[in-house]
Design a protein around this nucleic acid. Structure first.
Lengths: 181, 181
DNA sequence: CACACCATGTCAGTCCCTGTCATCGCTACA
DNA sequence: TGTAGCGATGACAGGGACTGACATGGTGTG
């Protein structure tokens, strides 16, 4: 059985959309994917994690983009460049992102996990800024700010009827941040 | 048996510090507090929540302070005023805050819950700013920024050997934020 | 064919959390 | 004073998330 992992992810998305996260059992997901509950937990550390498969990739992408950004960029602009690179991974899969986002919005436990992923992204971004020579309160602040821009832009991107470009949403939100007093 | 709730909170703090969060059973906490596991779960929605008793109060305090702040304050400064008011609740109980912080740092599940509380604080702050007339991307951005300042300042406050004032830490961090480019 | 290796299945067990019903102490009120 | 009501707790049963241990099968390599 090839791609058991992919089947579990798809099954989980379907079931969560059909009956909700809490009403879906880990055994249900496994069954629909044609595996055992035990193998589900060998692939995913917990039931929530099945929805967050791409987050590590996005984190790495953002991290690398920050290191590759022009050296004369300010900390905030460098961090934003990372976020833009990460967000770019999503522009091709808006449909999936929208469905996933709806599922997460419907459940506090999933929101909690998403916050953890965002926090990981902040940490990774902070670390990247530090290797660029940014000193300490500034690195964390810039990283937090950039990830916040991503979160707000993303939520606008998935909630808008007529789909705009995600990079446009980010630029808009970043402009509002720069204007903040 | 008066103050069962307080006894459970204290017992939990002790046990988490002694053997760690995962090695402590809900039944263990209840037993040390002289109650049943069932009553533990009647007081706290889950095992983690026992560590976050004051967060709702802090959230309300910040919210109210924002509404009471001078009308001519910028969105960011108003949000910071809220955070300062909330943080002020902690200055008298630094010892407890430090122990609690250590426990949370040692466990991802607890960090996740803390992130949820911070997100709730962001939401509450955003809402307060909106009722002050702040419009939409700005309200969320200012709220996020202010709560970030709190998080960074707090982590410095609890990790410093010679205890500074928390308000000083916040002012320092806020200054770094205003200087951010 | 023999061997190692990796993914998976099977089974038993712990702990988190919930619904349900009985009990007990306190308070209001006749 | 008695008693009805009420809020907090105890007792019990059960479902679902996860884990450890061991067995099995399929695959590639010599």
């Amino acid at each position: 059985m090839p791609d058991a992992r992919g089947r579990m992810i798809r099954s989980a998305m379907e079931l969560f959309a059909e009956r909700g996260f809490e009403q879906t059992t880990a055994g249900d997901i496994a069954e629909r994917a044609g595996v055992t509950e035990r193998t589900f937990f060998r692939h995913f550390t917990d039931k929530r994690e099945v929805l967050f498969d791409g987050s590590a990739t996005m984190e790495r992408t953002a991290h690398d983009a920050i290191l590759a950004a022009p050296a004369d960029l300010s900390p905030l602009e460098a961090a934003l460049a990372g976020v833009v690179a990460g967000a770019d991974l999503l522009s091709d899969v808006r449909d999936h992102a929208v469905r996933r986002s709806r599922i997460i919005s419907a459940n506090p436990a999933l929101q909690e996990r998403e916050l953890l992923k965002m926090a990981a992204m902040v940490d990774s971004t902070t670390e990247a800024l530090r290797t660029r020579g940014v000193t300490d309160p500034a690195a964390g602040l810039a990283a937090h700010s950039a990830v916040t821009v991503f979160q707000i832009a993303f939520s606008r991107w998935v909630s808008t009827e007529e789909p705009p470009e995600i990079l446009g949403c980010i630029e808009e939100t970043a402009a509002a941040l720069r204007a903040l007093k």
